[in-house]
Every structure is written in structure tokens, then in C-alpha cells.
């Protein structure tokens, strides 16, 4: 049987790029499909530093980190398909790729699934109240503000205190927005201690611990949230025009799920990066993806 390519890499974020480069270096023919304008995935939304110490020996922003990888890709034999989405992966080892002006089926020997993750949505949180505009996930706001230059509201409440939320809160505060509170269910904020010092504490973001948002208010646009103190059940209203949730990432296994048989994926399909498990540090994710991609079948 002859295949169109040795390896199809689905997704061109940090995991996909690291895997594609490793495979090309090892002599495989590689096609990498990425839905974005340019490879990088969620790195392209990250304007903060803290990337690359492990891999490049430098403190880079996410965007710079992605640019380094793109340079390596250009020098490699990897065929990059930008603005291209893999619609499906079929059991006969073909995939359907859709991009501007081009819909094709590609057959492959192996497939590296680097489809990343999506954020737990505010819509899934069973909040009471209305469903006004002005409610976003942290990653969505990163994309809107940092990648697409769009604006959001002025008076912001965060729900959840993970790394992404802390960094974004500090950035929005620096950009002149009022970050009114970061609401966290636990009795201390989440995220890496480094980020807590560098962002949350430095930007003086008020924390409301052991609490959660229970209700949205507003007709067309958000006008406030109800915050419930969990140990006492006491509720209070906080006026705001934007709610940003940072309540966790979920691996995106949409393309893999239909291929599961007896709880296992076919051996030719290898999930890497955040669609394998959620990573905290991108250097670790990239190194793991490299390793996983190179494991012989």
C-alpha cells in the first residue's frame, strides 16, 4: 500500500509543530494541517513572557516562541497547510482536509493528533439568570484582544483563577480595564506560584475566595453577577459589564472519538499535546510531543 504521506499532523500549535519537526528530521514526509492564518495555535494569543527557557534558553513571549518554531518549519521539509481544518479521520487511514479553495482526502501511514484543547464554557456552568452578551472564556478574550485587536468591556470579573486567567487579568488591568475581582471556589488561588507573584499580586487583583458566580444579570448586555460565598451561602451582587471564565481546559478528542474501539485508539493515531493531557508548561508539552511522535510503532 502506498500512502500520500508518511505522517499527517493534525493541528499546528506547539505540540503539532514540535512533532512535525521531529518527524521531518527523522526523514518522514509530513503534512501539517493548521486552521489558523499561521501555525502557532494558542501561542499566537499569548503576548506574555515565560516561554522557551527550556527549549531555546531564552525568555520569550508565546508569539515569539511560535515564530521560532515557524522559522524551523520553513527550514524543514514539512508541508504546512495553513487555514486548513481536518474535518474527519477515517479508519482506512485517510483524512478529509478543508481549506480555502481546496477540499481533499489524504492517506497516511500515521497520524499525529495535535488538536489541542478547548475551554470549559461559561454556558455549561448552570448559571442562573439571563444570557446576556459580555460573557467569555479567558482564551476567547486573549484571541479577541491580542490576536484580532477587538475590544471587550471595561469592568471585568473573572471566575476561576488558573494561570491563563491570572495573566489575562494582569494584562487587562495594565491596559486600563477595571478588574473588579477574581472569584475562586477554593480557599487559595490556582495556577503556578510564579504566575501568582508576577501577575496576580503585582497587578493587585482582588481575590474573592471560597466563592462562585451563581447568576448573570442584564438584558441585552451583562450588568452584573451574583457571587455566592460557598461556606455561608451568602449572596452578593457585583456590578460589571464583562465576565471572563477561566475554569479549565478539556482535551479536544472530537476527531479521535469515532475511532475508539474497546476504549483504545488505533496504533497509527497518536494524540500529543493538550489533546493528550492538559500541560502547564509549553516546553514540557513540546518535548513530550517530540518524543511521542518518534516512538516507533
Amino acid at each position: 500500500m502506498s500512502w500520500d504521506v508518511n505522517v499527517l499532523v493534525v493541528g499546528g500549535g506547539a505540540a503539532g509543530m514540535a512533532a512535525a519537526l521531529a518527524l521531518a528530521e527523522a526523514g518522514a514526509s509530513v503534512v501539517m494541517a493548521d486552521p489558523g492564518e499561521k501555525p502557532g495555535g494558542i501561542l499566537n494569543r499569548c503576548v506574555h513572557r515565560g516561554f522557551g527557557q527550556g527549549l531555546f534558553g531564552e525568555d520569550l513571549t508565546g508569539q515569539e516562541y511560535a515564530a521560532r518554531f515557524r522559522r524551523l518549519l520553513r527550514e524543514s521539509s514539512v508541508t504546512v497547510r495553513p487555514r486548513t481544518t481536518v474535518l474527519s479521520i477515517l479508519p482506512d487511514r485517510t483524512a478529509v482536509l478543508s481549506g480555502p479553495g481546496r477540499l481533499e482526502k489524504i492517506s497516511f501511514e500515521r497520524c499525529i493528533l495535535a488538536a489541542g484543547s478547548y475551554e470549559r464554557t461559561p454556558q455549561s456552568l448552570l448559571l442562573g439568570g439571563t444570557r446576556p452578551a459580555g460573557v467569555y472564556t479567558a482564551g476567547c478574550v486573549q484571541g479577541l484582544v491580542h490576536e484580532y485587536g477587538q475590544d471587550i468591556g471595561q469592568r471585568i470579573v473573572f471566575l476561576g483563577s488558573g494561570d491563563v486567567g491570572q495573566i489575562l487579568a494582569a494584562q487587562l488591568a495594565a491596559a486600563g480595564k477595571q478588574v473588579l475581582a477574581m472569584v475562586e471556589q477554593k480557599d487559595r488561588p490556582g495556577g503556578l506560584p510564579r504566575n501568582r507573584r508576577e501577575y496576580l499580586e503585582a497587578a493587585n487583583i482582588p481575590l474573592i475566595l471560597q466563592s462562585t458566580v451563581t447568576r448573570l444579570h442584564g438584558d441585552r448586555h451583562l450588568t452584573g453577577v451574583t457571587i455566592c460565598h460557598l461556606p455561608t451561602g451568602k449572596e452578593s451582587f457585583l456590578s460589571c459589564d464583562t465576565l471572563i471564565t477561566a475554569t479549565g481546559l478539556i482535551p479536544d478528542r472530537r476527531l479521535a472519538d469515532p475511532l475508539m474501539k474497546d476504549g483504545k485508539l488505533p496504533e497509527w493515531l497518536i494524540p500529543v499535546g493538550n489533546c493528550r493531557r492538559i500541560y502547564d508548561i509549553v516546553d514540557v508539552l513540546a518535548a513530550d510531543s517530540r518524543k511521542l511522535a518518534l516512538i516507533p510503532q
Binding site: T130, R131, R215
Partner: peptide, 24 residues
């Protein structure tokens, strides 16, 4: 009363409020 204040072009429905207890 339109909560968005004057200058707003009539109310846009954000739907009826829902109750978390009702959903549970």
C-alpha cells in the same frame, strides 16, 4: 424600563432568566 438606558434602541431580549435550581 429599558435597563440599557436612553439611546438604546428598544430592549433586546436576553431571554427569560433561568434558575440554577430549576436546571438541577
Amino acid at each position: 424600563t429599558d435597563p440599557a438606558g436612553p439611546g438604546h434602541n428598544g430592549p433586546q431580549w436576553a431571554g427569560a432568566p433561568t434558575e440554577a435550581s430549576g436546571i438541577r
